[in-house]
Computed example of a mutant assay.
Amino acid sequence: MHQELETAFLTQLNPHLGLVQRVCRLYGRQAEERQDLQQEILYQLWKAYPHFRGTAQFSTWLYRVALNTALTYERQRRRRPVAEPLEDWVRTLATPPEGPEAEQLRVLYSTIEQLSAVDKAVVLLYLEEQPYAQIAAVTGLSVSHVSVRLVRIRKKLEQTRVGAEAR
């Protein structure tokens, strides 16, 4: 059954591949984008083919699916930031430190991993030097609750540090 469906799909699709390519040329800016879009359109066509009833011409149905896919792709592309290659100095920032600092960071991160999701967010924002008001706005906590959580988190981190040094 699957083989028959695939054969019928390819038989109807092959004469209309030019339509798909034209849609891709119109909505894809670069060759890589056009290839990605074409792959997505073909995937969506294949996924929707079992629901094709034949009430409209195949080319009409194909255009509808292809254009809807292209428009969705375009909306998603606009939302994504433009990818730019990393500068060399950015790569050096990602290099973890070595020596005693590396062990301290490893312990810190392993301790942070054990915190609740909200506490992790609070710690992240605190380490990013965000003011308490900003931390509260992002997490949905009150400013005083942020302060209380940070005190509790510091105690947990301190206990973990003392425990790690005792080992």
Rank of each mutant, 00 (worst) to 15 (best):
W61K: 02
V146N: 12
A66H: 13
L150W: 11
A121C: 01
L124F: 11
Y126C: 01
Y126R: 03
L42I: 12
T160A: 10
Q76D: 13
A70W: 10
I41Q: 07
T60A: 14
L45H: 14
A137N: 02
N68W: 12
T92E: 12
I41T: 07
A56H: 03
L45P: 05
R79D: 06
L141G: 03
Q21W: 07
T69P: 00
E101D: 06
H51Q: 07
F9R: 01
Q130N: 03
R161T: 06
Q12I: 01
T160I: 00
P100E: 13
S110I: 00
L71A: 00
H51N: 09
R91M: 11
A8C: 09
E101W: 08
E113W: 03
K156N: 10
P96Q: 11
D36H: 09
K120P: 03
Q114R: 15
E32Y: 11
R25F: 12
V90S: 04
S59N: 00
E4S: 11
E103T: 14
L93W: 09
D88R: 06
I41G: 04
D88W: 06
T72A: 12
Y126W: 11
R91P: 07
Q38G: 15
K47M: 14
E128T: 01
W89V: 08
A117S: 10
K47W: 12
V123C: 14
L10G: 01
D36T: 04
H2L: 14
